[in-house]
């Protein structure tokens, strides 16, 4: 019973913090106020102050995390509504996502190698731009560290939502397809949540990019490992 109440408390706290901090973001629209960032920082601070281990927080946290699976399924709905755009842009989507996935995997791997990190870490950073469950599975298959892979996926996600809009602007990537494919290929679901702020076309493109990069990465990743390790 005590455990159930504690779980309720952590889940409730996460939702309330998110809603409050989200309204703050909606009001000011500053990138640093992005609710997933502010809520994460606030929760980590609370857990550290009260000396609560992450595993205990996850008793309730996992309830919220378990909504991610059905939410990814739900992305099929906005995509279906934009199916005409999807069909028209099939070739640019495939070219953009494949190019991004190849560059993402190689650049992470080569840079981590150049800095002389252990092979285990190099293999772990490889799938960082791919959605968390796939990235963890891939890292495990390569001989990397799955939980650390999830951390790199978060680094990629936060980079995408915090620096992405700036980068897209600087590079004059201003079409719905360019923005959507850029965000989804590099920053998976978090990038897709950002793409929803741009509009339905960007959101659909980003969810396609996220899915396609998971498919491409599942084949490309093992091929790279087989070739280079």
């Amino acid at each position: 019973m005590a455990i159930f109440l504690l779980s309720m408390l952590f889940a409730g706290l996460t939702i309330i913090l998110y809603l409050v901090l989200n309204s703050l973001y909606v009001k000011y629209r500053w990138t640093v106020l992005t609710p997933v960032l502010t809520t994460t920082v606030a929760l980590i601070a609370i857990l550290l102050v009260f000396d609560i281990p992450y595993d205990r927080y996850m008793l309730g946290g996992q309830w919220i995390g378990s909504l991610l699976g059905p939410a990814v399924v739900a992305l099929a709905v906005p995509l279906y509504k934009q199916r005409d755009l999807l069909l028209q842009s099939l070739l640019p989507i495939v070219i953009g996502v494949s190019g991004g996935t190849v560059v993402g995997m190689f650049s992470g791997m080569l840079l981590a190698r150049a800095f002389h990190f252990s092979e285990e870490v190099v293999l772990t950073i490889l799938p960082k731009s791919i959605t968390t469950p796939v990235a963890m599975q891939l890292a495990e298959g390569f001989g990397g560290i799955p939980s650390l892979a999830a951390v790199f996926v978060m680094v990629a996600g936060f980079t995408g939502i915090l620096a992405g809009p700036w980068l897209l602007k600087v590079l004059r990537i201003d079409s719905p397809i360019g923005r959507g494919i850029g965000l989804g290929s590099s920053a998976h679901g978090l990038g897709t949540s950002k793409a929803f702020e741009y509009g339905p076309d960007e959101a659909s493109m980003s969810s396609v990019a996220m899915t396609l990069s998971a498919v491409i990465g599942s084949f490309l990743g093992p091929a790279i490992v087989w070739l280079f390790f």
Binding site: P92, G99, S107, V155, L168
Partner: peptide
């Protein structure tokens, strides 16, 4: 490395598709 590589991924995929 993670940040740089992510930005590179976004630049390449976004630019190529656009």
């Amino acid at each position: 490395i993670g940040v740089f590589s992510t930005l590179l991924t976004m630049a390449v995929s976004g630019y190529l598709s656009q």
